Simulated assay, not measured.
Amino acid sequence: MNQTQQMNNDAVVEVLNASGASDIVLVCEHASAFIPTALNDLGLSAEARHSHAAWDPGAKAVACEMARQLDAPLVASKVSRLVYDCNRPPDAPSAMPERSEVFDIPGNKKLTRNDRETRVARYYTPFHDRLKQVLSTKPDPVVVTIHSFTPIYQGIQREVEVGILYDQDTRLADAMLEVETGTFVTRRNDPYGPADGVTHTLKEHALPQGRRNVMIEIRNDLIETADAQTSLAIQMSRWVADAVTQSKDISCRV
């Protein structure tokens, strides 16, 4: 990789606490609402650019504190999921959505095949290559992705506070649900699940390799302030660490 390529990659993905000793590797695909200047804000209003449609509010702050608590590396995207959703494969319409929640995305309408391939090369590939590289440094990596979700979706109030999501491998999710102390309203594959196409990172970097994995969704009204983010991250870190220990000797059943 030449210097220009490295600079371009650094602009779209970052690794925090890269030397973290834990086998846990944290991932935050929707960490940022940033839209590169060349894309002209994708034609969006300020409201849309700062809404949950563009990123997962609070998720990166929680993930950063978890990285500190667990001494784990964190791989995070530095661009909005409306530019490219790094938790979607290149052939998914939702990777570069024309509409997200209540917002039309003018800058994603009528993208040519070349336009899409350019975004894949510029945003998706560097992110997943970097994640793959970080995972390769661990003897028994555990993939934990951190997301947040809106409390009201399409006018419906969501009761769930923390979702524990998985695809086919239930080991870590089962352990998390077993050790959870009832602090949160916690549910399996809620508010999303595999049928919603949200488990791409797990399917790409954990299932084929037999790695334990889980996707954590946090209702974003629980992490609106810095204090709330820190407090929840501390609780979540203990929860994840206990579950990783409990699931260590369980064979993959996929």
Rank of each mutant, 00 (worst) to 15 (best):
T150K: 00
S45W: 02
F103P: 09
P36Q: 12
L222G: 10
P73E: 07
T118F: 09
L232F: 00
D56Q: 07
V120P: 01
L135P: 05
F103D: 07
F34W: 10
H205Q: 12
S80M: 04
R187T: 03
E98T: 15
M215S: 06
R219C: 04
K60H: 15
N9Q: 15
G20P: 00
K248W: 03
R158S: 05
F34E: 07
S237N: 03
L165G: 03
Y84H: 10
D242Y: 02
M236I: 11
V83D: 01
K60G: 00
V79P: 01
F149G: 09
D56R: 05
S22H: 02
F103K: 09
S77N: 14
A241Y: 01
M1F: 09
H52S: 09
T150Y: 05
E204N: 11
T201A: 10
E29C: 13
Y192I: 00
R116I: 14
E65D: 12
Q209R: 14
P57H: 04
T4K: 15
R211D: 02
A226H: 05
D221V: 02
K138D: 02
R212L: 06
I152K: 13
S80F: 10
K203C: 11
Y124M: 02
D174F: 05
L172V: 03
F127L: 07
D174V: 06
A53W: 04
A31M: 13
R211S: 06
L177T: 10
D104A: 12
V244A: 10
M1P: 14
K132W: 01
P73A: 11
P141L: 03
L111I: 13
Q3R: 15
K248Q: 14
A46W: 04
P106R: 07
M1H: 11
H147N: 06
I216Y: 05
R88L: 04
Y153D: 05
V83T: 13
A195M: 08
T170D: 14
L16W: 14
A53P: 06
G43F: 03
A61C: 02
W239S: 01
M1S: 14
Y153M: 13
P141I: 03
T4G: 07
H205C: 06
N108W: 04
V143R: 04
V25K: 08
G182Y: 08
R130M: 11
F103N: 06
V102N: 08
N189H: 01
N87W: 14
M236R: 01
V13T: 13
M176V: 11
L165Q: 00
I250F: 10
A38R: 14
K110E: 13
C64S: 13
R122Q: 13
S45D: 06
M96W: 08
